[in-house]
Simulated scan of single mutants.
Amino acid sequence: MFKVGADFDKVQASRPEFKREREVTFTQPPNPNWKQGDGANDGGASLKKNHVEIDPHEDGRDVSSNYKLLISGIVPRPIALISSKSKDGKTTNLAPFSYSQVINHDPPLFTVGFVGPLEKAKDSLKNLTESGECVINIISEHFVEAANATAINAPYGVSEWDISGLTQAPSSVVQAARVKESIMSIEGKLVETKEFQSRVTPGKKTGVLAIIEGVRFWVREDAINDDKSLVDLKVLKPISRLGGISYGRTTEALEIPRPRF
């Protein structure tokens, strides 16, 4: 993992080249013979390790430590590459958010977490709350660099579409464009927002949760099955967010049937 202070270009050049041809493969689970009551598959090794208790609000602990801990420990995280448009239609925005997840299917609901208060909403949140619309685009391997470029701290009014070189495709229900390069995109309508206050500085607004309903799905034709119910992982090749500046690939998977009582 790259460490702050190191020469990133030098570190990057020393690493193996990206193997584009690497396909998603399925393996057996660690213990194919596991049965109910067996517990962990490591033979009890994890029980010999102790844990460190951390109070997120202990005296002297900086809130940035909680941020670093959470983004390095809660992994991998899906990334919502959100495209939005201002209410007057004059400004477009494209930005990635890894505080994101699907939370329901009837109706299709998604959550996205934004850092900072509504009063000082950055581009994506400002557009989302004022227009009530957005598109959630899923990031795949073939445009990860372009997606990362949209995280730039450009001033409001500067379009990350131009910075990334990604292509706008028309949406059906919302005004914001979807990313043509994305294997899967979701047109969304804002359901509600919830603002949160700091525990360290009472009264200070530190984040906003947005609940978004998916009103249209777009999936590339070579990635969807005949009844439009399954996205092919081997085509999607999703990119996830890890700690620091790290991203993850999905190149290996395993299947375990859901148990029945």
Rank of each mutant, 00 (worst) to 15 (best):
W218H: 15
A95Q: 01
F114T: 02
G132C: 08
D162Q: 14
G39H: 00
L109A: 05
D226W: 01
L233V: 14
P107F: 12
I186N: 12
V208E: 09
K237R: 15
F2P: 08
I186T: 05
H105A: 15
P16C: 12
Q175M: 06
D42S: 01
E160I: 09
K204V: 04
A45L: 10
E119M: 01
K90I: 14
F261D: 13
A177F: 10
E119A: 12
G73W: 07
R77Q: 09
K126N: 13
P76E: 09
I71V: 13
R199K: 12
V208Q: 08
I79T: 02
Q101W: 02
R61F: 00
N104V: 09
Q197H: 03
R220S: 11
D227Q: 11
T150M: 13
E252Y: 07
T150Y: 08
S124P: 05
I54M: 11
K180P: 02
P30T: 10
P107R: 10
W161Q: 06
R260K: 15
G116S: 11
F196I: 00
V235F: 03
P16E: 12
P155S: 12
D222S: 13
Y99C: 00
N93I: 09
V24R: 00
T250K: 01
E17A: 15
P257D: 12
I245Y: 04
E255Q: 06
A80Q: 09
G73I: 05
V179P: 00
H105D: 14
F261G: 12
I71P: 01
Y99N: 00
W34N: 07
G165C: 13
R22W: 03
A210E: 11
D162I: 11
L81H: 08
E58K: 08
F143G: 02
V52C: 01
K228D: 14
W161H: 04
L109M: 14
L242D: 00
G244D: 06
S100N: 08
E119W: 01
K228T: 13
R15P: 00
P32S: 07
G207H: 11
F18H: 13
S172H: 07
V75Q: 05
S65K: 12
M184C: 14
E221I: 09
T206C: 03
S100M: 12
G203S: 03
P259N: 10
P32Y: 09
F8D: 13
P202W: 07
S83D: 02
E58D: 05
L209M: 15
E145L: 13
I136V: 14
A176D: 04
R220K: 15
I136S: 10
Q12R: 15
S185L: 02
I186R: 10
A80S: 14
D222C: 11
H57F: 12
G5D: 14
S86V: 08
I103V: 15
S171Q: 05
R178N: 11
N41H: 05
L166K: 02
G60V: 06
G39W: 00
R77D: 05
P202Y: 03
A146L: 06
P202G: 00
Q28A: 15
F114N: 10
V219Q: 00
I139C: 08
N41M: 10
D123L: 04
T201S: 00
N31E: 09
V200I: 13
P259I: 11
G244V: 08
K122V: 04
N41D: 06
L230E: 07
Q168A: 15
T250H: 01
D88E: 03
G113P: 07
E221H: 07
H142F: 10
F114M: 04
G132A: 04
E58T: 03
E133N: 10
A80T: 13
K189D: 07
S98L: 02
V11C: 00
